[in-house]
Design a protein around this nucleic acid. Structure first.
Lengths: 136, 136
DNA sequence: TTAAGTGCAAAGGCTTTGCAGCATA
DNA sequence: TATGCTGCAAAGCCTTTGCACTTAA
């Protein structure tokens, strides 16, 4: 764990992750990594993601699901708004996130280092669909 | 799915879940359900949890981990403050949660039905430990 | 009586790991 | 050259599912 080497696989994976505007899961990363004639095994995908996470390059998020998603770290404080109809995920930046962190630190004495904030519901489009189907 | 029956297993599981002051995962629920001479299979634990979830009796939360935790639903809006040192989880009630939900609804038009809010960091005790070890 | 619920065991996702060969520094 | 990295395949966790049996209503 002291000396890292620069392999073509890791370079490719890092490039793909940073090209994503948002988050990506291991499966999709694997798919993209093997799309253009390249070849990266699932083991390498997972090992790389864990390394990037330890190095602080990416953040790991569950998005409230059973598997993880990854995104480049150091983004502004934000929360994820998830549509339970179509799966769309919106990144929502608001000063309220900072207020929440500060309140938790103040009231519970925690040193907060990371947030995972998910608001789940239905986007305008799916909400209308849902109202129509509930009415029947 | 129309007619529910009242089995001893479901009664026991529901009792155990409501006795928990907070959240519990399937594994721990299974352990407790089989602790006092009772016998409930893992399949029943999972099936019951999914039923309770559908009926709106419990909320399913990932707590940012790879498996789910469950807690009785209808609690006040709160977020979970998770210590990454000792694993302690504190439930933190604050009006900021409601403000966050309202802001998301206002700014993105979503109908938010559920929140999963995790603040991760270190509790006062683990934070001190950590400072000591980093200093060495 | 009959349809819902259960247990068992097998299978299904996602992730990790042991090992032998490969490649970077 | 030596150690880190990779691929493969097997295994590990958590969860779901098919099927035959049991039980609540």
């Amino acid at each position: 764990m002291e000396n890292y080497r620069q392999s073509s696989q890791r370079q490719l994976l890092l490039k793909l992750i940073s090209e994503v505007n948002g988050h990506i899961d291991a499966k999709e990363l694997y798919r993209r990594a093997n799309a253009q004639g390249n070849s990266v095994s699932t083991a390498t995908v997972y090992r790389s993601l864990n390394l990037f996470k330890e190095l602080g390059i990416v953040d790991e998020r569950s998005l409230g699901q059973r598997h993880y998603c990854y995104e480049v770290s150091g983004k502004l404080d934000h929360c994820h708004v998830v549509c339970q109809g179509c799966g769309k995920i919106v990144e929502f930046e608001t000063p309220l996130v900072n207020q929440l962190v500060e309140a938790a630190q103040r009231e519970h004495g925690f040193n907060i280092t990371k947030t995972e904030l998910y608001l789940k519901g239905y986007c305008p489009w799916c909400e209308r669909e849902r109202e129509l189907s509930l009415r029947h």
